[in-house]
């Protein structure tokens, strides 16, 4: 909980200005595109396009590296493990029972790692160019029920609050002499009960007030609720939507109708 960061980076680029609904569609189509391609070169081209888009969005280098540090670790694991567990085809490069490594195995491992990168990059593009509230607003406009959208928004909104609560309870318990990060796993797990119980109680209390606050502001008064800012698709958004769909539709047609491997 404490490691949570909001990936959103403010900048007024065209990626930020694009309607969140279009961006959600684009994430879906780009992800599907990465999934239907298996050729390493094609995937590398897609990855390069993603990197260019991230640069266009003026992402913060620090946040990007932080977000991708996990992705890079997973990629490294895949590159190492894929050829070991999936040694198909020829030429065989190394064969010492039970370990057998083939060239297609290595290439497939790298391709899969690049695919993971593309998937992560597609989501990252959405997350760092779209504020959480636009994201929720987009989802609600796309048909998510308002109360679900509100729950989602509230969980995002209260993440830092709870993170702060957990920190202060930890401090309070440390001040009373609790050593939280000492001892074996069992002892540590037991010690954390002293943090968990007050946290849960605080959370329940807050939830009580929250429900009173929601009702006091006429929540659920009318079914035809309005919104302070309505999302409006502009000409540029339609162009972006067209591109987002085409970027998947064209390769998919080529692959599945004309049977050209990608």
């Amino acid at each position: 909980m404490t490691g949570f960061i909001d990936l959103y980076t403010e900048a007024g680029t065209f990626l930020h200005r694009t309607d969140p609904r279009v961006k959600i569609v684009a994430v879906a189509t780009l992800s599907l595109l990465a999934l239907i391609m298996s050729n390493l070169v094609n995937l590398l081209v897609l990855a390069a396009v993603m990197v260019v888009l991230i640069l266009f969005g003026r992402a913060s280098f620090k946040k990007t590296m932080l977000a991708f540090s996990y992705v890079f670790r997973v990629m490294a694991l895949i590159v190492v493990l894929w050829p070991l567990f999936n040694p198909g085809g020829t030429p065989v490069l190394f064969d010492l029972w039970p370990i057998k490594i083939t060239e297609p195995g290595i290439l497939a491992g790298i391709a899969t790692a690049v695919r993971i990168f593309c998937l992560a990059a597609a989501w990252y593009l959405l997350m760092f160019t779209t504020s959480q509230r636009d994201l929720v607003r987009g989802l609600v406009k796309m048909g998510l029920r308002f109360d679900f959208g509100l729950s989602l928004a509230m969980s995002l909104r209260f993440l830092p609050t709870f993170s702060a609560i957990v920190e202060s309870i930890k401090e309070a318990q440390r001040a009373r002499g609790l050593e939280l990060d000492k001892g074996n796993f069992r002892k540590r797990a037991k010690d954390y009960v002293a943090v968990l119980v007050p946290t849960v109680i605080t959370a329940l209390k807050m939830a009580d007030t929250l429900s009173l606050a929601l009702q006091s502001r006429a929540y659920g008064a009318r079914a035809d609720r309005t919104y302070v800012r309505e999302l409006k698709m502009r000409a540029g958004d339609y162009v972006a939507l067209f591109i987002a769909v085409a970027v998947f539709a064209i390769p998919a047609t080529v692959k599945y109708i004309f049977s050209v491997p990608l």
Partner: peptide, 11 residues
Amino acid sequence: AFGPENLAVPS
């Protein structure tokens, strides 16, 4: 805006 939104006040 949350209160007036629930009361369906125009944007």
